[in-house]
Structure formats: C-alpha cells, structure tokens
Amino acid sequence: MPNDMNIERSRAGQQAQTVRVKPKWHMTVLHIVYYLIMICFLIFYMLPFWGTVMTSFKTNSEVMTTTPITPPTQWTLEGYASAMEELGVPLLTSLFVTLFGAAGSVFLGSICAYALSKWKFKFNNVFFIALVAATYLPFQAILIPLLQTISALDLYDNIWGLVLVHTVFGMPMCTVMMRGYYADIPDALIRQAMIDGNGMWAIYRKIVLPNTMIATITVFVFQCTSIWNEMLFALVLGGYDSKPATIALNELAGTMAAEFNVQMAGSLILALPVLVLYIFMGKYLISGQMSGAVTAS
C-alpha cells in the first residue's frame, strides 16, 4: 500500500512538473514583436555579406544582369581566380607584416607590461600614463613626421618599414592590455622565483610568460586583426614593392571597373584569415579576456 502511494505521488509530481503556465496573450505578441525586430536586424546586417558571397560566385555578365542578392544561376570561381592574380603577392606581404608586426609589438608590450606591473622604479606611473596616452594618439596627426622619419631611415616602400611602424604603434596597446593580465600574477610568485635564484629576465622567461600564455595569445590575435585590416600606414609608407592586401583590394576596385565579382571575391579572401583566426582561437580569446576580469586565486 505505501508503495502504491509513492507511485501515485511520483506521477502527480511528474504531472506537476510538466504543467506549463499558459502565457498571457499580450506576452506572446510581445515575443513575436521582439523576434521580428531581431530578424529585421539580422537581415539588415547579413544582407551585404550575403550579396558579397553571391556576387563573388557569379560570372561578370551575370553580375550585370542580376541583383547582388540573387544566387548565381551558374556557380563559378573565375572571380576568385582573377582576384588571386592581383592579391597573391600583397597577401603574402600582409601575412609577413602582420606576423612580424604583431610578434614584435606583443613581445615589446609584454616586456614593458612586466616591468611596469612587477618592478618598482622611478617614474613607473609616468611611463604607464605616457603609454596609455599613446594609445589615444590619432595616427593622422603624426603621419608627416612619421613619413619623414621612415624616409630618413631608408625604409620607405620597404616591408620592414611597415613591420617597424606596426611594432612601435602596436606596443602601447599591447602594454596596456598585458599589464592588466600581469597584475593578476601574485607578487609572491615573483619573490619566490627571485629566492630560487632567478634574475629579472629569467623570471619573465620561466614564470611570467608560461603562466600568461592565454593572455599573450589574446593580445597577439588582437594585434594580428588590427594590422591585417590596417590601411593608413600601408597607403602612406608602402609603395609598389611593399603593398599589403588592403591596398591591393582598394586598387582592385579602382582599376577593374564594374568587375564586382572579382572585387567581392577579393574582399572575402581578405576577410577569410581573420574569420578563421576568430573561429579557431575563439575559446582562447574568451578565456583570455575573462582571465583579466577577476583576481587570480
């Protein structure tokens, strides 16, 4: 008898759990309105991308006769082939400048951040404030003196000139970002490493860097994205020999009038590495951004 009662009770419990409260009619309408608004925004944001993808797979003649958003009747890669002819070398240039520029700025920023967050020296805060101020500096304001300096160094239209500029101008932002991460490393860890017989540089190499790998990857990806997409320095300081892909893409629009399929294919090729980076490094980026938000236990 008690067993039967228990079964009855459990059934009643299940029913009680599955009973759903019927939403009031005005709540349902409100939800529909919310979804409609969100769908509108989604279409608004995704439509240009959709148009770009569709156009990139069309022939040039189909581009002329159809609207950009209609799917191609005949799918072709000829736009991509033509775009790669123009973008091939500049893409390699972009890759080179991005990797070396990002690596340089992250390396210097990391060392600066380490010194500023973990070592006390005179004018420590003054240096940091100067670096923060540097991140707000509009690049347009220093373009002319920068051009003169780069010319004087004989680095105009030189791939290393772009690497140098990106390293130097990326460094303050990297410092500011990494200082936050390094501040979370307990001071006791640094003191312990000192007592274990390590100097300032060895502590950085053996303790600080390995324990902040995610932060370093985050800042590296951030730097890669901004250097890859950068156009102003490339336009002013790079000539024909050191032309990165952003400039080549711009020229694609100027020289091949109305060849929209080639331009769209070029845009997508240029956007692809950043997208791939975000897809594969996404989890590191999120955890890296979060790890700076709370104090390390």
């Binding site: 003191r191 312990q192 017989g197 100097g199 303790i207």
Partner: peptide
C-alpha cells in the same frame, strides 16, 4: 636574494602553476 642561499615559504605557497 638569488645569491643569499636562502629558502623561503610564503603564506600563499607561491607554487609555480605551470
């Protein structure tokens, strides 16, 4: 400190996490 041949234990232990 690295040349004093001392060993120290901190309240936080300060074990290297890596």
């Amino acid at each position: 400190p690295q040349e004093r041949n001392i060993a120290m234990v901190f309240q936080e232990y300060a074990l290297y996490p890596n």
